[in-house]
Structures are given as C-alpha cells and as structure tokens.
Design a protein around this nucleic acid. Structure first.
Length: 296
DNA sequence: ATATGGCCCTGGTTGC
DNA sequence: TGCAACCAGGGCCATA
C-alpha cells in the first residue's frame, strides 16, 4: 500500500516527466467512486492547464496547475495554442491543484498512449508532449480532487510531516492519549504519511511495543520513535518504496524496501536482530507485526 | 473531545 | 480441480 515513501517516489517520477506539460485531453472511465470533485468539474478544470509541478503532501500527490494564457498575457509573445512544453513553468502562479490519493491499490502512471489500458483505469490525461498520465485503482479506495485556488485554499495535510517534525512537537502529538502508539501513528490528523508498513517498521527500530499507550511513552522512547520513523522513511525513499501488494512507481517499476523489512509481513520468521519469531496481532483493525523480545 | 468499529471494494488466498 | 467464503486495509462516518 502506498505510504509516504511510495507516494514520494511516484510524485518525483511524475514531476520529472510531466513538469511543464499541458493537459490537452481528459478522460474519466467511471462516474461512480473515486471523485471528491465531480468528474465534470474536474474535466473542466484540468483541460488546457499546464502542470507546473508535482509534489507529495502526506500520502497525497499534489499537481500544481497553471494556465498557459498567463505567459502570453505577460508580453512574452504569442504561444502556440498547444505548446509542447511551456517555458519556465515555475514562473507561473498555481491557479488550481489536482490531488491524487492512491488509497490501497492506486497507481499513477506516465505512459505512452499506445500502451494497453489496464483494467480499473479511472482517469487518463493526454499531455501535449504526447505522453499520458493514468490513474488506475482496482479497489477504488483512491480519491481524485480538483481545487480551484481562486475559490478554495491550497491543499494542506491535516497532520504533521514525519520527515521534518521537531522533537518537541512530535512528543506533544501523543501527550495524554490513551490509545495504542501504533493506532496513533496511523492517525493521519496527527502525522500525515505513516501507514501500516512504516508504523510497524518504525516501532521495531525504536524498540517500542505497538500496544503501548501513546501517552505513556517516555521522553527517550518518543525521541527514538521520531528519529526511527524519519530514518526508515528516508531509507525507503532511497530504495524507491516497498512493493508489497502491487505498488509501482510512475514508470511501473517496483521498489526495493520490502527486502529490508524487519517485521512487516514476517510473522513467524526469525527477528533479524535476535532470532525470536516475529509475532502478528490485530490492532486497530490492522495486522500488526513486532518482535516480542526487541520491543518492550 | 477521544476512541472504536463498520463500511467501502476487488483480487488473492484459503478451505471444502 | 472448482468454486465460494474470507481477508486485507486507508479513510470516512456513525456511535459510544
């Protein structure tokens, strides 16, 4: 399932391939499900826009959109109606955003238009460079949203960024909370971007038992957890994410971090540190994996 | 306010 | 071997 490292990998890949590209065609394959904004509204908002850049916020992919009109209006001379690439895209102010949440099984792919269209393809954006941006999501837990920045504020994640949060702010997130630390890590209004894989892996690296009450973590445990999470997320980004179910990056390439998992999906297998069999429990409705000896 | 549990949805796995 | 039941789980919502 795509979490922060997978979403970061995809956002970087999409950015590198479509920055400055113009959306010259929009197709939505389904009119039920993944739309936070109606397909008609998205189509109207997306068509003709220039993709200024693509980045990650929490588990969301945010495409910053501008209008090619602005370039000609600022006296740069006439642009062709359908330019291959717009010059100096960062100079354009974002006017709108297209926000993609991948849910459990979502993929955002940059591909040649002649490539076969996978089952459960819900959106196809034709780009002026000749490529196509496709959103595929079998389980339909993903969401697509269009934001007109003239009318609504830019997208902001509800929770803090796990890669950059300061120790004091991190500790404050869990103060007074009775729920299990694992459940707290999954709460996106506290931290944005940590999902089931990296919650388990972070807790293992910090040596903390998933069931431990969040509010009862000591100062040193909190600090260990913050840096363990940051390290494991950064390491996973370097390896292109974890491909456990069907995650692939913007080019359809799998990640490698699943090979470095210490606990996730390793129940019964020996702990990499102490050989004790990894245990699996159900916590907050999620499969939870930990080493009973290394995590107290 | 905080916390819990059901629901959505489909493909893969399990069990008879 | 074939088919149905079951399970996974991120985010949202209703409920306690």
């Amino acid at each position: 399932m795509p979490e922060l490292p997978e979403v970061e990998t995809i956002a970087r890949g999409v950015h590198a391939r479509v920055q400055g590209d113009q959306i010259v065609g929009v197709w939505f394959g389904s009119h039920r499900e993944p739309f936070k904004t109606s397909p008609a509204q998205q189509e109207k908002g997306l068509d003709g826009r220039v993709i200024l850049g693509v980045h990650r916020t929490g588990k969301h992919i945010v495409c910053e959109l501008g209008s090619p009109r602005l370039v000609s209006e600022t006296g740069k001379g006439k642009l062709p109606a359908r330019p291959k690439k717009v010059a100096n895209p960062p100079a354009l102010e974002p006017e709108a955003q297209w926000i993609v949440h991948l849910g459990m099984t979502g993929r955002l792919l940059v591909t040649a238009p002649e490539n076969p269209v996978a089952a459960h393809t819900h959106a196809r954006l034709t780009l002026s460079s000749g490529r196509e941006l496709r959103f595929v999501d079998p389980r339909r837990f993903g969401r697509l949203e269009f934001r007109d920045l003239g009318k609504v504020p830019p997208f902001a994640a509800a929770g803090a960024e796990p890669l950059s949060i300061e120790p004091q702010a991190f500790a404050a997130l869990f103060r007074g909370r009775k729920l299990a630390i694992k459940a707290a890590l999954l709460n996106q209004t506290l931290l944005s971007g940590v999902g089931n894989i990296y919650a388990d892996e972070g807790l293992f690296r910090a040596g903390i038992r998933p069931r431990k009450s969040a509010g009862r973590l000591t100062g040193s445990e909190l600090e260990r957890l913050r840096s363990a999470l940051r390290d494991v997320l950064q390491h996973a980004i370097r390896l292109g994410g974890s491909s456990v179910s069907d995650y692939v990056d913007a080019d359809g390439v799998r990640g490698f971090f699943q090979l470095e998992h210490c606990v996730y999906l390793r129940s019964g297998e020996p702990c990499r540190r102490c050989e004790t069999p990894i245990r699996r429990i159900l916590l907050a409705g999620r499969g939870t994996h930990y080493c009973p000896k290394c995590q107290r």
